[in-house]
Design a protein around this nucleic acid. Structure first.
Lengths: 337, 337
DNA sequence: GTGAAAGCGCTAACAC
DNA sequence: GTGTTAGCGCTTTCAC
């Protein structure tokens, strides 16, 4: 009924607890015979070592556990990233604790605290806009931290991001190149770093073409599919509606696409690729980022730190890829209701 | 540099270690004064309790940690399921360890062993086709196990699945209702429970209409997008090609859609809904399952067990939803190359 | 090769 | 209220 301990195994094998410890740990200096008897007792009792107890005493520090904290585990982008991080971890014999923050600083704090209380060796986090002072003590005690997807303002640690600004600039420039001048921007909360970067890219492109922003065409703070649909509806009833649209993330793109007839009556370019993008009418042009590369890069940085790398924090910026399909090439046309 | 312990806090506050323990645990019987001094020392040192050490000694059993083992964390269906389980766990103050098996019994074993070695209180697993004898000892020692998405042949535990057979039957019946008689089946490995169930549903529908299966139209073992495309290509060059197709999971549906012109030249119904399904031409008809409901149901079963429920194992079967959009209503038409 | 003793960071049980 | 002692399951250290 109770979980067997080394003591139980020792008793069953007629040896001391210490001998069992050696056999389980695969240490040398145990006669083949004794080892065999111990192994038999292990099998008979179904013994498995308690790694939490082990880590408490062991000199080599570490629990072979890392924590992964993202915005939303269900988001396809993060899901792929999580998978690639988990693969890297598994390859190295680590396990991973995961948590979603929902972009709420409070939940981020709770989740991270629960992870550090369990002595994770490192943390890969998609930081919220909240402060991260609570990370100082564990970091001083040796917990390694890597930021991914966006930097944390108050954390000077390894950070893996993509060039959001450049990606957005390319997307909007593409639209401009096809003659559009009234291009709407639909984004999530401006406070989120990726969103302000993408908005900056939008502005860059307009400015480079000598255009001014029309505030009527800019919608920040779109948190959901529904928000995006509402924003789109608002845009359509404008006296001078946009002829093209830049959507600043996958959720918003999905909302927009859901609110439009097909073939879509306006030009669209979205940030983040989508599974069926190519099969739409017209095929959806997107700025795509590689979540697997982002994840494995972050994992490699983290494990290097865990393995003792104490060099200056690295800021890795990956490039986005512009995939021109056709939705960005729609002719300039007034949007009817 | 080193992580402070209760001893350090005790020293800094000029009290005994036991008093610190009481304050940290929020136990009564400490004077407000003393408590304040301890709290100040805690803040000054950035102390955080080591929960691994705590769980070692504490009488109330448990580590407030559960393990979640799925096929592939990146799969959209599992990603949503993971998120809903994580939400339930977080609500109850639990953290979750995750791992992907890739459908490999060996990796499943490794991942689960790493989890049980860390004393998880429970496990939610999408079992591979491998045996699960290795789970017996931890289960006898009190680790609770719930299967999700499919049952494990050798495990009599709470299991949450959907009615795959019924869902597939409905899909194929829909196709038959629109006059199709040559309906292809494209599925993943038949050994996977969900796939054999869906195939059974396909057979049910044919049989109910007095039709026999044409083995030429049946393709099992499609593991990837590419496999699905290849299978589709093979189907198209048949002397008497299918006029309709039932795709047995999301990955295969994506592959098929990618290999076809649009508007699609044949009727299609897929198992699993897809984000842009509604926006395709024609909109994709699907059998949809609710990953959030599956996840939260499994989580609730698991936590009930952890909280002491010792009743007979429950087998919960959720229903699928048939979403007729239009791709299943395509007229019967010979598929050209 | 094997084992006894000490102790990792903490809490249970009992003293004062 | 507060402190002392023992001990969770294991590894370290050192003795035989």
């Amino acid at each position: 009924m109770k979980r067997p301990t080394m003591k139980d195994v020792a008793q069953a094998a007629g040896v001391s607890l210490m001998t069992v410890s050696r056999v389980i740990a695969g240490e040398p200096g145990v006669s083949p015979d004794t080892a065999a008897r111990v192994e038999q007792a292990v099998r008979k009792l179904g013994y498995q070592r308690n790694d939490n107890a082990r880590n408490l005493r062991q000199k080599r520090p570490g629990t072979s556990t890392i924590g992964l904290v993202v915005d939303d585990l269900a988001n396809p982008f993060y899901a792929l990233m999580v998978r690639s991080i988990e693969d890297e971890a598994h390859r190295r014999g680590y396990v991973v604790l995961v948590g979603s923050t929902n972009d709420e600083p409070r939940r981020e704090r709770e989740v991270i605290a629960a992870f550090t209380a369990r002595q994770v060796d490192g943390l890969i986090i998609v930081p919220t806009i909240g402060g991260h002072g609570f990370l100082k003590p564990p970091m001083e005690a040796g917990t390694q931290v890597v930021c991914v997807d966006r930097p944390a303002r108050d954390l000077d640690v390894d950070t893996v991001t993509v060039d959001n600004r450049d990606g957005a600039r390319g997307a909007v420039t593409h639209l401009l190149g096809h003659g559009h001048t009234r291009i709407a921007y639909l984004g999530d909360r401006y406070e989120i770093w990726t969103q302000s970067e993408r908005y900056a890219g939008y502005l860059d492109a307009l400015t480079a073409h000598g255009l001014a922003v029309d505030p009527d065409l800019v919608r920040h703070g779109l948190r959901s599919h529904g928000d995006a649909q509402d924003a789109l509806a608002g845009l359509r009833v404008l006296p001078d509606p946009p002829t093209a649209l830049f959507s600043s993330n996958d959720v918003i793109t999905l909302g927009v696409l859901d609110g439009l007839d097909h073939p879509t009556p306006m030009a669209i370019v979205g940030f983040d690729d989508l599974p069926l993008a190519k099969q739409l009418d017209p095929p959806l042009t997107v700025v795509s980022q590689d979540p697997v590369a982002v994840g494995s890069t972050a994992a490699n940085l983290l494990f290097a730190r865990i393995d003792g790398d104490r060099s200056a924090p690295r800021k890795v910026v990956l490039l986005t890829r512009f995939i021109a399909r056709r939705s960005g090439e729609r002719p300039v046309r007034r949007l009817s209701r």
